[in-house]
């Protein structure tokens, strides 16, 4: 239907593929969302600290592990992208799979981090009113995790296509989009971790 007609149309040459440009805009929107969280955190902290309602606590160690996982997976996705560019399909598949597994590992680590926080007595639901700082950490990491889950869905699609030999030198758009997005969520988590570490 649509695709049929579309394929009949003369193809226009665009400076940047629309899909990738859309992704950049989406990333900007996500940045605004986290900017809102971070500025709310910064504004709220001194206010609440003055009222003794800002419990100080150490971020669970798992969050740091997950930051490391984010770095590693950024490297693997970079390698996957490079492999695809050079038409090294098996390397591409291998690195994509590695990224996918690291993505899952990231989610598991976040989950363990939350469990760790709960064992510290910082509840996500019906928290002690003094633990607003913990509520911020939960909210921020939850929304970030949703972004990561989106990335994993994207990775799954790319991986499926890679196994069908649909990711190669001439079909790079999806790979590039996945590549950019995965870097974004990884960097975002590293930034958020550092922010929460130094600000909290």
């Amino acid at each position: 239907m649509n695709t049929k007609v579309a394929s009949k149309r003369p193809k226009e040459n665009y400076r940047i593929e629309p899909m990738r440009f859309n992704l950049v805009l989406m990333i900007i929107a996500s940045c605004m969302l986290f900017a809102a969280f971070v500025s709310a955190y910064i504004v709220h902290m001194p206010d609440a600290a003055a009222k003794n309602t800002w419990t100080k606590f150490d971020l669970p160690i798992q969050f740091m592990y997950s930051a490391i996982v984010a770095v590693i997976s950024s490297i693997t996705i970079y390698l996957a992208n490079r492999a695809a560019k050079n038409d090294e399909l098996s390397a591409n598949k291998a690195f994509l799979s590695a990224t996918w597994i690291l993505g899952i590992l990231f989610c598991v680590l976040q989950y363990l981090g939350w469990k760790n926080m709960i064992s510290m007595g910082l509840m996500p639901v019906n928290a002690n009113p003094e633990d607003i700082s913990a509520s911020y950490v939960y909210a921020i990491s939850l929304v970030h995790l949703l972004h990561v889950l989106g990335g994993i869905i994207l990775l799954t699609v790319t991986l499926t296509k890679a196994f069908r030999f649909q990711v190669h030198k001439k079909e790079l758009t999806l790979m590039k989009v996945t590549h950019t997005y995965w870097h974004f969520v990884g960097l975002l988590w590293i930034y958020l971790y550092l922010f929460l570490y130094f600000a909290g």
Binding site: A29, M32, L33, A36, F37, P124, I132, A139, V143
Partner: peptide, 20 residues
């Protein structure tokens, strides 16, 4: 996105008992 953030906090306050 900023309204989305505000709305999410409100959802947390309403449903999960946080104190934003």
């Amino acid at each position: 996105p900023v309204l989305l953030g505000a709305g999410l906090f409100l959802v947390f306050d309403r449903s999960f008992g946080t104190s934003f």
